[in-house]
Simulated scan of single mutants.
Amino acid sequence: MDIAESAALVVVDVQKGFEEAGFWGPRNNPGADDNIAELIDVWQSTGRPVVFVRHDSPKPQSPLRPGYEGNDLKDYVEERRGKGAGAELFVTKTVNSAFLGTPDLGAWLTAEGIRQVVVVGIQTNMCVETTARMGGNLGYDVVVPYDATYTFDLEGPFGWRRSADEVAQASAVSLHGGGFARVVTTEEVVGAAGL
């Protein structure tokens, strides 16, 4: 696997509101935050571009709503903003895809000459997957380090309920098997990034 010198790390919705287990329920990938932090550090130390994305939920009860502390980026992410040698962008959105936020992610990637994106963050099957799918549809080379994402148990139609692991694995299979992205590990990405 090759990670381009210009590859952008897109850090999706790593916000304090996702720590509210009473709202979200059980989660998976307990090491995801450490892996996200490691990838941000690698990107910043190698001068690669980083995109930080925040979800501003329009739902009044959401832990991610603006004006509520849960809307804030987790401390380890906020502390890293502005610390890299490479280009940096901050995107806010109200929907699942970072490509439908403000400012326009696609326009920025084009202006920067970026064709490869590495997508990490929360939730695997929601905003990470939607951003990765749209990236693939738009012609980007998309890489998703699975263990630098996490999600929660979920109930769907017909009373079907799936654990966070099952939901995340289904998302990974759809992304990888469907050709939207390459789903890999953090270790593989760090190795390919030249460290």
Rank of each mutant, 00 (worst) to 15 (best):
K83S: 13
E19W: 12
N137G: 13
F90H: 14
G86P: 02
G136F: 07
Y76R: 09
N96Y: 15
M134A: 12
T124H: 12
K93H: 04
L39C: 00
P103N: 10
V119M: 09
S57E: 01
D13H: 05
T92Y: 02
V117L: 04
L138Q: 11
G82C: 02
R80D: 07
F18C: 09
D34K: 12
W24Q: 08
Y140P: 06
F90S: 14
L105P: 07
S62K: 06
R65M: 13
R54L: 12
A98F: 06
S97I: 09
F52E: 07
F23Q: 01
N137A: 13
V119R: 01
E78R: 13
G136Q: 01
W43G: 03
D41Y: 02
D75P: 05
I114N: 03
N29Y: 12
T92Q: 12
T130R: 11
V77L: 04
P58T: 04
P58A: 09
A21T: 15
G113V: 00
Q61K: 15
R48Q: 05
D33Q: 14
R80K: 15
A37I: 06
Y68S: 14
V14W: 08
T131K: 06
F99M: 00
A98D: 04
E20L: 15
A21C: 11
Q15E: 06
R48I: 06
V128M: 11
E88G: 06
D75E: 15
N35E: 05
T46D: 08
H55T: 05
T92G: 10
D72C: 14
N96R: 14
V117C: 02
V120P: 08
R65A: 15
G136A: 03
L89K: 05
A98L: 06
I122S: 12
D33E: 15
I114T: 07
K93Y: 05
F18R: 10
D34A: 15
G84D: 04
P49F: 00
P63H: 00
G82V: 10
L64Y: 04
F52W: 05
T131M: 07
V53L: 00
I36E: 02
T130D: 10
R27I: 07
I122M: 14
W43A: 10
G84Y: 06
T124F: 10
D33M: 13
S57I: 02
R27E: 15
F18K: 03
